[in-house]
Amino acid sequence: MGAQQRVFKQKIRSTQSLRKIFKAMELIAASRIQKAIARSQAASPYANALTRAVSAVASESNVEHVLTTESENVSRAAVLVIGPDRGFAGAYSANLLREAEELIRLLHSEGKDVQLFTIGSKAKNYYTFRDRKIERSWTGISESPTAENAREIGEALLENFDPESADSGLDEIYIVFTKFVSSVTHDPEYRRLLPLEVVDAGEASTGGGSAESSGAAAFPLYEFEPSAEAVLDSLLPRYIDSRILSALLSASASEQASRQAAMKTATDNADDLIKTYTRLANTARQAEITQELTEIVGGADALAASAAGD
């Protein structure tokens, strides 16, 4: 076999084995999207119930709570970036980090100090590489976040949240994540987590689950047990955890969807390459055969000519 043919055969083989890997990753991602969407929907009844309860307490009683009070001088803001742990997801993490950078620039321009909290090693590496200080980071949870993860993150954020202290506490907390709209559409976006703007039930479920239209109805006069303050005290941290969880779940669904799309493209490209290389290999083979034939015919002609000359 000629050298050229061998080169093409080798390229075809390696592309084929890459293609197998891409295909496998695509299938894995596809099955995980379904799982992520299902988990996101499973969490939405809780999120809806909480949202409704929080709205009810907030709208009925004039209870001031530290988590809902707007600080007058906002000097410190925390940004929680929810990113992936692994790559191979196309522009997913690039888009997310661009959104985060935009938010950070905006906060800086308003004269606020920004503290970074990251989830996933991609976001962590991005900031470590640029010598930016990260307050705290979590890795290894982005693909299948649990309620415990959300609670831990919520606690860590709330620990530092203290708008009343002038020098050390956080005044605002933002969250940057990728919202899962559908398998093909996922938008990076940021929202303010704290101070809470108590929103309608429909607005709060970032998890992609359909929110019931319960938020619009007027709330009945609730009796609070033991008191409105106590109820709010207990509800608000949970509400925050639940919003973090739904952001985490939404981000994980988006991550898998991006990965699936990226791997689909990679598989298609591998197919194209294999086709191209196969054509080139065929051409090379035919060229070789043609050359061999020419050589044989030429040799025979020369032999015949020399035999006739004798």
């Binding site: 309860a53 009810a56 307490v57 009945p220 006069l221 609730y222 009796e223 609070f224 047990e225 033991p226 106590a230 109820v231 207990s234």
Partner: peptide, 19 residues
């Protein structure tokens, strides 16, 4: 069970939000 003790709810109960 709420913080104040047990609460029993029958149909027609008044609206309650409890911890």
């Amino acid at each position: 069970r709420t913080l104040d003790g047990e609460i029993g709810v029958l149909p027609g109960h008044e609206p309650v939000l409890g911890v």
